[in-house]
Amino acid sequence: MLDAVLAWLPYAVAGWVLLVGCVGIVVSNNYVHAVVCLAVVQSATYLLLLAIGWEPHATAPVFGDISTKARVVDPVVQAMTLTDVVVGATVTALLLALTVQLAKRHGTLDPDEVRSLESDQDDHG
């Protein structure tokens, strides 16, 4: 029974992190909070990728000081996770830059109070 639970638990956690991040975005009343929630959604994919690559009694896929015959975990998903982290970080930076401009032009970070993408103030159109 425990084995059956453990066999799927990491995937369940990844799914839960994904959904809880989505819930956070929807109920968010602050753009910075929403951007962080998006980062939470994305971290679900790290967990999923690494969980797929893991196997018992295997070590890191780096052969600097171990035998080339040693059992290692899947390096492909690790490389994909690296890509994922980098893209996630840059997207977060871009969204935060947009948030800074939004706060300056509209004077609010609440998504509900932003009616249009145009500036509220006439002299900044």
Partner: peptide, 8 residues
């Protein structure tokens, strides 16, 4: 030696 680096 670093397989992840080689994949990337």
């Amino acid at each position: 030696a670093n397989t992840v680096g080689s994949v990337t």
